[in-house]
C-alpha cells in the first residue's frame, strides 16, 4: 500500500501479518486436507482399514449412484432455507444491536445461550416441542388439538436457525457498526424513499458482513446432521450423515474421504464461480 515501502519492508509486513496464520493453516489445514485426498484414492481392506489399490473408484461410486445425488440435493436445500430464515431473523437484530447504547452487552447476550452445551439446548427444544410438551400445552389451553411439532422438518429448521444465528449476527454486526449513515441522508436529500434509501445507501455497506455471515451459516448448515438426526427423528439422511457413517459404522474411510473431498470441492468451486462472475463489480473480494 505504502508506495515508499521497499521490497524488504513489504516482505517484513507480510511476514508479520500473514506469516503466522498462513503457516498455521498450512500445517493444520492444508496438510490434513492432503491426507484426506490421499485417503480418498485408496480402498477399504477386508478389516476395514485403508489399503491399496489406488484409483478413482470412490468418486465413480459416488457419481454413479443417484441415491447420493438425492442426499446432496436434500442437504443443499435444507441448508439454503435454514440460512434464509437465519438471515431474516438476524439481519434486523444486527442493526438493533449496533445502534443500541449498550451494544457490547447485547452482543454478549447473543452468545451467552451458546455457552451451554449443544446437546442440552437441542434436548430443551425437544422438551418444548414434544407431544406433551410446553408448546402443545399452550396450544391445547386455547382449545386447539395438539400439533405434531416433533419430530418434524419444522423442528429441524427451527433448531438449525437457532444454532447458527450467532454465526450470522456476529460478522454482520461488525459491518453494520461501521455504516456511514450520512449516505442515507444524502439519498434522502436526493429524494429517495426510505426503502430505496436503505437499499441503495445502506444495504451495500452491509454486504461484506452479510456475505461472511451467510457463508459461515450456509456452509456448516449444509454439512450438519446431528440436528436433523435428533429433531427430524433420524429419517432425513444428509451429506454429513453419509460422511460420519463411513468413518464410523460402515468403516469405509476411503469412501468417506472421497465424499468429504466432493463436499469441499463443491463449496470452493461455488465460491470461485461466484467470484468470477462478480469480478467486474468488485464483489469478488467478498470471497
Amino acid at each position: 500500500m505504502n508506495e515508499a515501502a521497499t521490497p524488504w519492508q513489504k516482505a517484513r509486513r507480510l511476514l508479520v501479518t500473514v506469516g503466522p496464520g498462513a503457516l498455521w493453516l498450512t500445517v493444520f489445514v492444508l496438510v490434513p486436507s492432503l491426507l484426506i485426498l490421499l485417503a480418498s484414492l485408496l480402498s477399504r481392506s477386508s478389516t476395514g482399514s485403508l489399503a491399496p489399490p489406488w484409483g478413482l473408484h470412490n468418486y465413480v461410486r459416488f457419481f454413479t449412484e443417484p441415491l447420493f445425488w438425492e442426499i446432496v440435493g436434500r442437504s443443499l436445500w435444507i441448508g439454503w432455507w435454514a440460512t434464509v430464515l437465519t438471515v431474516l431473523m438476524g439481519y434486523p437484530l444486527a442493526f438493533y444491536i449496533a445502534a443500541h447504547r449498550y451494544k457490547q452487552v447485547l452482543l454478549l447476550l447473543v452468545v451467552i445461550p451458546f455457552f451451554t452445551n449443544f446437546l442440552i439446548r437441542v434436548y430443551a427444544w425437544i422438551i418444548l416441542l414434544q407431544r406433551e410438551g410446553a408448546v402443545n400445552a399452550v396450544i391445547t389451553a386455547f382449545g386447539l388439538p395438539p400439533a405434531d411439532l416433533f419430530p418434524s422438518t419444522f423442528a429441524v429448521y427451527l433448531a438449525t436457525v437457532y444454532t447458527f444465528l450467532p454465526f450470522l449476527v456476529l460478522p454482520l454486526y461488525a459491518a453494520v457498526e461501521r455504516i456511514d449513515w450520512s449516505q442515507l441522508e444524502a439519498a434522502y436529500d436526493l429524494g429517495a424513499t426510505p426503502v430505496r434509501g436503505f437499499w441503495e445507501a445502506i444495504f451495500p455497506q452491509t454486504l461484506p458482513g452479510l456475505f461472511a455471515g451467510f457463508l459461515l451459516t450456509f456452509i456448516p448448515a449444509v454439512g450438519t446432521f446431528v440436528i436433523a438426526d435428533l429433531l427430524g427423528g433420524g429419517k432425513i439422511t444428509l451429506i454429513g450423515n453419509l460422511i460420519q457413517q463411513q468413518f464410523t459404522s460402515a468403516q469405509n474411510w476411503a469412501f468417506g474421504a472421497a465424499v468429504s473431498m466432493i463436499l469441499m470441492v463443491m463449496v470452493l468451486l461455488g465460491l470461485w464461480l461466484y467470484a468470477r462472475t462478480q469480478g467486474e463489480r468488485g464483489l469478488d473480494e467478498l470471497v
Binding site: 422438551i127 414434544q130 407431544r131 406433551e132 410438551g133 419430530p151 427430524g232 427423528g233 433420524g234 429419517k235
Partner: peptide, 22 residues
Amino acid sequence: AKRRSQGFAGGTDAVQQVLGGN
C-alpha cells in the same frame, strides 16, 4: 416400518420420547 414410524432414536432418547408421549 421407517415410513410409518416416528423415526429413529438412540436408547435413552427413545425412552424419553415414550415418557413425553411422542
